[in-house]
């Protein structure tokens, strides 16, 4: 592969709010954590599809990725994220940035997601 290969491995990759996230940011993460992946019974956060949530005076930017580039639910998922965040008091606008850096991998799944997928009979 050429220069456009993203960093290998997921060392240092963490899901969820940073340790110094304030209460509002924590609330935004918890809110997005309510959005289920339409294909399997885990949330977008547990699926490690949400890379970052930033707030600037009520304007929220969600940086996210997809396990599959041709995802048929691509727009639906973004609509769900926008819809759920707009209900949070203090949010004035929601922007979604799609990124492929780093490329999603199943190694990023949270332990909770692994457990729920196993319970649902989906192999990892």
């Amino acid at each position: 592969m050429s220069a456009n290969t993203a960093g290998t491995g997921t060392a240092g990759f963490s899901i969820g709010p940073e340790e110094d996230a304030d209460e509002f940011e924590q609330e935004l993460w918890a809110t997005v954590d309510e959005v289920p992946d339409p294909h399997i019974p885990v949330s977008l956060v547990d699926m490690a599809m949400i890379y970052d949530i930033e707030v600037d005076a009520g304007e929220v930017t969600v940086t996210m990725t997809y396990p599959c580039m041709g995802c048929p639910a691509y727009d639906m998922i973004q609509d769900d994220v926008r819809a759920v965040l707009r209900t949070v008091r203090g949010v004035t606008d929601v922007t979604i940035e799609v990124t492929w850096d780093p490329v999603w991998s199943k190694d990023m799944l949270t332990d909770r997601a692994r457990e729920e997928l196993r319970d649902a009979g989906i192999g990892l």
């Binding site: 592969m1 050429s2 456009n4 290969t5 993203a6 990124t99 492929w100 490329v103």
Partner: peptide, 19 residues
């Protein structure tokens, strides 16, 4: 695509390569 080295394509071309 694979010849592109611009940073806007970082990760994206790798993902396309998987397909």
């Amino acid at each position: 695509l694979d010849a592109i080295r611009h940073e806007d394509f970082t990760g994206m071309v790798q993902k396309m390569g998987e397909d």
